[in-house]
Design a protein around this nucleic acid. Structure first.
Lengths: 336, 336
DNA sequence: TTGAAAGCGCTACCAT
DNA sequence: ATGGTAGCGCTTTCAA
């Protein structure tokens, strides 16, 4: 059994209250007493029992991160920075992965919500009612999902998607395809909308495909209809899907960027590591993780009286790489 | 405030002991009483407070996963499956990322070890003394790091690396390079050793580079010395590094696999998504996560008296893709 | 089969 | 500035 506060108190010749104060509110203890207690505690190897403290205080100093898929680099990077940020503020972080199953999100969030002080829901797909219900019970911050009256960190990607279309237009493309992301995903909708608006603005023909789940296989599947559509450029919902497209295009002997230009999104490692490297819309995912963690921890801070509802938006930008190139031929003349 | 056991007891007209039993040991309660209590509990929306239970029982029904880098697909996949497995057994999972900083591993593990029932250390780099010290205090399972008398899940990759060399030899390569992984990493050492032994067996010349941290930039950096070495094939420590190499080779106008064949390891999404797709050594990471979680939870099971020390090894195999090809020219004649 | 009550380790209020 | 003590919500003997 670990050393308890009572043993420290006995060994230091003070009461348990004093020992407790030395750790919780050191400024309320006289200098020499504190030094003595801390010394005894150290020599005994005492460390406060967080569980006991949680029970007494009613707060656990822990938060839970709920994400659709940790093995997706997009979420991996968010989790990494959010987790790191939370730990610097002495919050422990629970992680739960819904495996892209929207159905289980709610139950999971409710269950986790009871054992933590706050919830960070990343790209949740559940209904607004369910989200409100959860936020009502546990302080919650949403990532990539707006909700009236709740704190959220949003990445509409509008600017980046617009830049992507502008880039393609400038290269001579006039028929663009878009491969949309998952149904029910707010960021998918925003990205699709941004592409649609940009194409309209530039007078480009747009063919839309989707929704597709964010898997490599989705891109592979989307490639054939894409070829058939006659589009010479494609903006995919994200890098994974984009590379699935590239893979299938290679198989079909369609050259990238010779015959078709491909743009991804998220600018994950995949984009840089691909050959040719993928032009992609950069999302500051580390910033997203950091700011969402900060937002949540602020909500939990005892000082704050009126929980500040904020809507943080981060900037996105197009990173141009070799996967996009000028139009080489007229649409429709391709033999494949 | 949430509903407590006392309120349920009052409403059901029984004692708190009985309510407690209904949830913990239902078989010790008479059928009708149990039904009644459970009914009342449900109607009141009661759920046991895990923190209070933890304090009373002395166990938290939670484990911690400590990994070097969650944003690395290798660890991401392990975390994903381990986490999922633990949750099916009603264990909550803490996640902590050391950001590849071996120095902080120990302190982190010690700190986390106090608030959880068990620790899953993935590819730890700390010293054996430190590992023993931690395992002594908290039930621990190691992944990718053997330790006398402790449970661990190991992936020596020997078979897969051997197959890689055999494959390259069969394609006509006679001079192979190896780009080693991080210093202090057990799996790096094992992989290097396996390549060394295989090259010797096949009578191939081997040039070794490294150690390199598992980053894309490491591969980029390793490519130039690789070219200078005159090797026609390279086995990289993992996919990320391999793709860094490919990227730089492309820049240098060295064709893959025309001039140099490249083999990666881990067979992450990166390998499949690359163009040309990367030949890679497949590691059953989901199995690693699942089995390590199982091992740990078995250690924690109350039934077990003598903690079974196991050493689980999983099988690896080479997945051949287009990044490897026959030798096109004699070593040394390349002009680059 | 059920109940009473003593903790689990810590905090926080109330005294002093 | 310090001590006494009543909980926090649940589990677990021990009795009945």
């Amino acid at each position: 059994m670990a050393v308890t506060i009572a043993e420290v108190a006995a060994a230091a010749g003070v009461s348990t209250s004093t020992v407790s104060r030395c750790f919780a509110t050191p400024e309320l203890v006289r200098g020499d007493t504190r030094l003595k207690v801390l010394g005894v505690a150290a020599s005994l190897g005492y460390t406060p029992n967080r569980i006991a403290r949680s029970l007494a205080v009613g707060r656990s100093r822990s938060i839970a991160l709920i994400v659709p898929d940790i093995a997706n680099l997009f979420f991996g990077r968010i989790v990494k920075s959010a987790q790191s940020r939370a730990r610097t503020k002495d919050y422990a972080v629970f992680l739960a992965d819904t495996d892209e199953r929207a159905r289980e999100e709610y139950d999971l969030a409710v269950a986790m919500g009871k054992q933590v002080d706050g919830l960070l829901l990343v790209s949740p797909r559940m209904s607004e009612e369910q989200l409100h219900d959860i936020a009502e019970r546990t302080p919650t911050v949403l990532v990539n999902r707006p909700l009236a009256g709740r704190s959220c960190v949003l990445v509409p990607s509008t600017e980046g998607m617009w830049q992507a279309v502008q880039h393609l237009y400038a290269l001579g493309h006039r028929h663009c395809a878009h491969i949309a992301g998952a149904r029910g995903s707010w960021s998918s909708e925003r990205r699709s909308l941004a592409v649609r608006e940009a194409c309209e603005e530039f007078g480009m023909t747009l063919t839309e495909f989707g929704p597709y789940e964010p898997f490599f296989s989705s891109g592979v599947r989307a490639a054939d209809p894409l070829i058939a559509s006659g589009a010479t450029a494609v903006v995919a919902h994200n890098d994974i899907v984009a590379l699935g497209v590239v893979s299938r295009l290679n198989e079909r002997r369609v050259s990238v960027p010779g015959d078709i230009s491909v743009v991804g999104a998220d600018d994950t490692l995949l984009a840089r590591a691909a050959s040719p490297p993928l032009t992609s819309v950069r999302i500051p995912l580390e910033e997203v993780g950091r700011r969402s963690a900060d937002l949540l921890l602020d909500l939990l801070a005892p000082g704050e009286v009126p929980p500040p509802v904020e809507e943080v938006r981060v900037e996105t930008e197009l990173i141009v790489r070799r996967s996009t190139g000028p139009v080489r031929q007229e649409p429709g003349t391709r033999t494949s």
